[in-house]
């Protein structure tokens, strides 16, 4: 686990989350959400660009943000599985954002005061952004969980489907600038009360899917990359 690897993970998480979130643009339940979700996607994309650029610099092999985003294959991406899961409906998007943004916010808070000043700079900006993402996801989790019978059913299904994937976020990595293992407790302390207030139930921890950090992804991920990289790869060496 090199410094390049750990920054790359952060960048891949943000990039893939941005790519999924961007799908909601012009597909949201109301116009205000088109604006809000596009905003969140833009924040995530901005984080991804800064992190991938920094990772490329650490590596020193001349790979910039686009080389890293567009010219790696599935097996070379190290994002957590959670962020690559497709958004079957708005409830999945909201609950996923609640889980992921809370994790990111805790992580960025610690990185912002860490020894790596470049990373601290990137994280400092991202702390504010992810704080807003958490607030947005919280508001919607409450509305959906405590809204109608139908919205509660969908929100619960989203929690049931996504919760198992949260474990991977906190797998120990003692060499990383911040070991994610230490974030599980504070994360649960933030997320559980939101779910409870939303009348949602946390499922059993019986399944803990993993693999993203070593490039073992879900089957759907190849399609996400294929779509994202298609134009870039069709024109090798072109400028955009």
């Amino acid at each position: 686990m090199t410094r390049f690897d750990s920054v790359l993970r952060l960048g891949d998480d943000a990039l893939v989350a941005a790519q999924r979130m961007a799908h909601w643009c012009a597909c949201a339940p109301q116009l205000e959400e088109d604006v809000a979700l596009a905003n969140i996607a833009l924040d995530l994309l901005g984080q991804a660009r800064a992190l991938l650029t920094y990772a490329g610099g650490i590596e020193g092999a001349g790979r910039d943000e686009d080389r890293l985003a567009y010219q790696r294959d599935e097996r070379e991406f190290t994002n957590a599985l959670l962020v690559e899961l497709p958004d079957a409906d708005f409830a999945v998007a909201v609950v996923k954002l609640l889980f992921f943004a809370t994790y990111q916010n805790l992580l960025y808070q610690r990185l912002a005061t860490g020894a790596d000043t470049t990373l601290a700079g990137i994280a400092g900006k991202a702390v504010k952004e992810t704080k807003y993402h958490v607030e947005h996801a919280t508001r919607w989790t409450l509305r959906l969980g405590d809204g109608t019978v139908e919205s509660r059913r969908r929100a619960q299904a989203a929690v049931d489907g996504l919760w198992p994937f949260t474990h991977e976020l906190f797998e120990p990595d003692p060499l990383a600038p911040v070991d994610p293992a230490g974030l599980r407790e504070p994360w649960a302390a933030l997320v559980r009360p939101v779910l409870t207030r939303a009348t949602l139930v946390v499922p059993d921890d019986d399944w803990r899917p993993t693999g993203g950090r070593v490039g073992l992804h879900t089957e759907g991920f190849g399609y996400l990359l294929g779509e994202m990289q298609s134009v870039h790869r069709a024109h090798p060496g072109a400028r955009w």
């Binding site: 994309l45 901005g46 994202m228 298609s230 955009w240």
Partner: peptide
């Protein structure tokens, strides 16, 4: 949006 050929153009 999902196929923009650079991250800058995507943003």
């Amino acid at each position: 949006i999902t196929r923009a050929p650079s991250l800058r153009r995507k943003a």
